[in-house]
Amino acid sequence: MNRLILGIALVGIVSSFTGCAMVHQKDREWLSDPVMQRSTDKLEGTLDGDNFPRREGSTGGSSGAGGGCGC
């Protein structure tokens, strides 16, 4: 039941996203600035992706899938 509710919520969120008003190319100057990016810089992501799974019991789900950690 919980999974069904979660699935419906996800579909709702996705649908609401794709129905958003368009931001035209000429208005995207700020969105292309580094401070507006979703992810941290590439090597920072590599190091965080290596470090947190060594110290925590859960991996995966944000910047990349976990696995391959020998800890």
Partner: peptide, 22 residues
């Protein structure tokens, strides 16, 4: 396996969702 969705909302906001199964 992961699936992601990113959406610009306004010229100063964006949102994203990521699901991962392992």
């Amino acid at each position: 396996y992961n699936l992601g969705l990113s959406q610009t909302l306004t010229p100063l906001s964006l949102a994203g969702l990521t699901a991962t199964v392992t």
